[in-house]
Write a protein that binds this DNA or RNA. Sequence first.
DNA 1: AATCTATTTGGCTATATTGCCAAGTACTGA
DNA 2: TCAGTACTTGGCAATATAGCCAAATAGATT
Lengths: 112, 112
Amino acid sequence: MYQENKKHLEARAKVLKAMAHPSRLFIIEELEREERCVCDLTELIGADISTVSKHLSVLKQAGIVIDDKRGNQVFYQLRVPCILNFFGCVESVLEAQAQDHTAFMKIGTVSN
Amino acid sequence: MYQENKKHLEARAKVLKAMAHPSRLFIIEELEREERCVCDLTELIGADISTVSKHLSVLKQAGIVIDDKRGNQVFYQLRVPCILNFFGCVESVLEAQAQDHTAFMKIGTVSN
DNA sequence: AATCTATTTGGCTATATTGCCAAGTACTGA
DNA sequence: TCAGTACTTGGCAATATAGCCAAATAGATT
C-alpha cells in the first residue's frame, strides 16, 4: 500500500519540500509575474546573494524553475505555469486555522 | 516586497513543509479516502507506531488533519477537502522532469 | 485492581537544512 | 590584461528533522 507508491510519494515530497520555505515561495510568486535575475530577487528578499542563489538551486533541482544565462546575469523563470493556483488549498488550510483561532479566542473570552 | 508578506509566506511554508514527506503524503491520500486510526496507518506504512504518531502530530500542528478519540483509538481525518486536487501541479512538475529525462537519454543515444 | 491495547511523549543519534562569509568562476568593459 | 559585476560553490555553525526504542498515558476488559 505504501511501499508500492513510495517512489512516487518521494518524488512529490521532493517538490513540496523545495517549495516549503518562505523565501522560495516568494521567489515562485515573483517569477509568476515575470522572469527575474538573481540580483533582483536578492534585492527583494534582502538576504545574502549566496543564500538566494542556493534557494534558486533548490528550486531548479526540484524542477520548479529553469535558468537562462544572458551575459553577466542569470535569469530564472517558472517551468510550469500552474504553481500559483496551487496555493488555493494551502490558503484553505490557513483560513481554517484562522477560524479556529478566532473560536478559541471567543471561548477564552467567555470563560474568563 | 518580501518583508511585508513574510508572515504569510511563513504560514504557507509551514503547511507545505508539513506535507513534504512521503509518509505524510501517503497519510493525506489515505485520509482523502476515509478516516483512519493510527494503527491502520501504522500497518499501511510499516514504520514504528511512534513514528507514525509523530507524523500525524506534524499534520495536525499544520492544520491539515483533525483527530477524534473514540474509545481506545484516535481517528484522523482531513480538515480541508481540497488537498488532493492540490497535487495536479506537483504532477506537472514531475511530468516536466520526466520529459527532460527522456530528452536527455535520447541526446545521449544520438551522441554515442 | 491488573492487564491489555492504542497512542503519545521523551530521549537519543544520524542526517539535512539554513544562512552567512570567503573564495572561485564567468562575463563585461576599459 | 585588469578590474568590476553577477553568480555559484565550499565551508562552517546553528538549528531542525526523522525514526527508533523505552517509558508514560488513557481507555477497555477481566
